[in-house]
Amino acid sequence: MENDKGPKGYHDVGGDPAGDIPMVDLPWLHWEKQVEAIRGLLGDGTRRIVSLDEVRRGFESFGVEKYNTLSFYRRRLAAMTDVLIEKGIVSRAELDEAIEAGTLRWTDVDTPP
C-alpha cells in the first residue's frame, strides 16, 4: 500500500487482515527481563548509548523476515545489539567469541560430578 508518504513499513500493521487474538498470558522469562533491563540502562540519562527510538529503528529496518519470525524480546535484543555494534561499543567478533565461549561453558555441564 502506498500513499503520498511512500510505501508503508512492514511494522505498520494497523488495519491489516489478521486472525484471532491469542488470549494467553505467557510468563516473563528471566533472559527477557535481562534484555529489558539492559536496554533501560543503556538508554538512561547517565549513558544515552541506545535509545528506544534507535531500537525501534533497528527492528523496523532489519528486514521483514526477521521481524516476522523473531519473538518480541529477540527482536529487541537483535536491534539493540546492532546499535551497539554500529556505535563501536562491542564488535561482532567479540560477540561471536563470547557466544562461542558461552556455548562451551553451557554444554559442558551435563557431565556428572
Partner: peptide, 22 residues
C-alpha cells in the same frame, strides 16, 4: 539447552559489564 538468543543475551551482558558500561 540455551537458545542462540539466550546465549546472545549472556554475551552482550557480560561484554557490557567487562567494558564497564554497566
Amino acid at each position: 539447552p540455551l537458545t542462540y538468543w539466550q546465549q546472545m543475551e549472556i554475551a552482550v551482558r557480560e561484554l557490557l559489564i567487562e567494558k564497564g558500561v554497566t
